[in-house]
Structures are given as C-alpha cells and as structure tokens.
Design a protein around this nucleic acid. Structure first.
Lengths: 136, 136
DNA sequence: TTGTACTGTAATAAATAACATTACAGTATG
DNA sequence: CATACTGTAATGTTATTTATTACAGTACAA
C-alpha cells in the first residue's frame, strides 16, 4: 500500500487531537512530521473527503478534527488512505492459457480481501482517542 | 510492502504444487506469470533460502517444492517475502522537539506489529495445498 | 568430451511511483 | 487592502520496481 501515507495521516490526526483547542496550520504540522507543507495539505484534502478533518481558509485559518477523536477509529484512517490491496498488486497479466494463470488473480483477490478484513477489524478496535492517549 | 512479490511467489509455489510430478523451468514459470525469467529465478532464490523450494541445476534441471504443500502455510510465504512493515514506513524523521513527533514512531511500530500479527495468524490458517486445491 | 539446456547471479537500464518544491489563485481577517 | 492562511496544479527529484543482457557454472546425453 501507498507507502507512508497511513503514518502521515495518523500523525496529523494525533496532532489535531492533542492540540484540539486551536487550529493548526499546514506549516506547523509539517514541522512536526518533517515533511513539506504541501504534502500535509494534500493529505488533509483526502482526510477531509473522508469526513475526518475540517479546515478554515484565510488568515488565522487551519485545521481541526471534524468529529470527536473517540468517534474516529484507526480503521477509518486506514480506509481513507487505502488505495491498493494490502499485500500488493502484481502488475503483470498472467497467462490465460495456463490453468493457474487463468484463475490466480481471482483467488489472490479473495485471499487479500480476507487478510485485509482482519486488519481492518483489528484497527477498528482502537480509536484516535485511544491512540492519542499514549502521548502523555 | 514490496509490491507484487507475494503474488509472484504464491503463483510460483502454486505452479510447483499443481505440476509436482516434474521439474519446472524458470522459462516455463515466467510464461505463466508473464514476467521475466530472471525475476523468477531471483524470487525462487529467496524461496530457497527460506526452505520452500529446491532446485536442480544443469540440463533437465528446474524447480520443485522443498516440502509437501500441506506443510507450507501462506504465512510462511508472507514471511519469506516480507521486508517492510505491512502498513508502510514513513521515511521522514519526525521532529523530536514535538511531543507527538518524539514518540510517534514508537507507537506506530507497536501498532504495525499488532496489525501484522493478525494478518500472519490469518494467513497461517491456509496452506499451499488448500490454496492450490482451488484450481480445479 | 562436447553440445545443449538449464540454474545462479551480477550489472545495468527502463519504467513507475513516491515525495518535494515552486508558484499562484482564492479566501477570511483585521 | 495587506496579511496569513488554504487549495491545487505543474514540475522536478529521488527511490523503488521491474526488465534485460550477459555470462559463468552445472548436469545430462549422445
């Protein structure tokens, strides 16, 4: 899966929760993660699409959680960020005239879906509030 | 995780199981997967290291499973291929002077380890024999 | 004992994906 | 209307994957 995005999104959300009494700017967030502010804005643009973050434009603008941290499960974060199967996609097209090649993708897809399912279930057990609590 | 390698390894192993009465060449395998034979040999080199495949050099050489398919769990395949955390690694170094930045990697690592654990457990429930059986 | 059909592996190139940067239009605030 | 932000497009850079070429080493078989 698209490397690093889960980490970054969770980092952003954790910051927003820890400093939930103010709006945070992309510059500030970028400073904590140590990446480019534009990447932060892009990543947040995605989190907004998924209803996890809201933003205010203009001077004194910035970002905040769109709902209480205890209503955000880490599986929601994963789903927001996910864009490829967890175990990777082969970008080859197996030979359809081979018994295995013909069916492998179907079976792999099913297997991946199952594997992904247990991860989602696992991540669903922890909320952002739980996670942020670890940062004393 | 290193994209496509799990798919490719499993494809290889499935072929070896389905046609277990003969040695398969890298050319043949590459033809079914539709990738370069050298990649197949490289991937198999890794599977050999992990005791899943054995090979015979020279004319009439090729590859075969190193043990019965029912003794190979899909988690063994995953472990053989795995080289990075399942949920990705951020390659940034979070700001250590930030409360969140300072601790985030520790907490992410723990979370990732947990998530990976459930996947491995899940994959451990299916053997290569189970998987190959699907290819009627 | 030599040609042939393989594996094993290094080196390199090409393609793709991830990440960074620049630039600037749009918006809210004071 | 100057300032401090977000939003987003366009482009550049770097890293990772995948493909290819090349060839040494090995076993079989005539």
């Amino acid at each position: 899966m698209t490397n690093g995005r889960f980490s970054i999104s969770l980092h952003i959300l954790t910051l927003l929760e820890m400093l939930s009494d103010e709006l945070l700017t992309s510059d500030y967030i970028a400073g904590s993660i140590n990446i480019n502010p534009v990447l932060v804005r892009k990543e947040i643009s995605n989190l907004k699409k998924h209803g996890l973050v809201e933003s205010k434009e203009g001077k004194a603008g910035g970002y905040a959680l769109a709902k209480p941290a205890r209503q955000i499960r880490l599986s929601d974060v994963y789903q927001a960020v996910r864009q490829a199967p967890l175990l990777g996609t082969a970008k080859n097209s197996p030979n359809p005239s081979c018994v295995v090649g013909k069916q492998i993708n179907k079976h792999l897809d099913a297997l991946y879906a199952d594997a992904e399912d247990v991860v989602v279930k696992k991540l669903g057990k922890t909320t952002l509030a739980d996670f942020a609590r670890k940062f004393a």
